[in-house]
Amino acid sequence: MFRRIDDAVRPAGITIWFEGQSLHAQAGDSLAAALLIHDAGAFRTTPVSGAPRAPYCLMGVCFDCLVEVDGVPNRQACMIEVRDGMQVRRQHGPAGVADDG
């Protein structure tokens, strides 16, 4: 859905994995941006109705970009940078909130 502007300097290319598929990204990209370039579709499904969601705010507010990164769930894709070899999966079901106390 998105493309890069042709800026003169290009940072190093790296590879990330989304649902087992390799995707090209650039160092410094947010994970959300890297997935949006490749039309990754839904980032997560909701715990209540299973509806598909993708980034809405890109500034850490809405939590609709939650994915599982390297086995850790509830990561905000818009708040983390890509790393070479990163393993990313869609998040299904509830976001665990550590506020039960």
Binding site: Y56, C57, L58
Partner: peptide, 18 residues
């Protein structure tokens, strides 16, 4: 999916050049 805030679209432009 596909609905974003205007600020989100601007963030893609500023942070990622998209």
């Amino acid at each position: 999916p596909g609905v974003m805030t205007v600020g989100a679209l601007q963030i893609l432009l500023k942070s990622d050049g998209l």
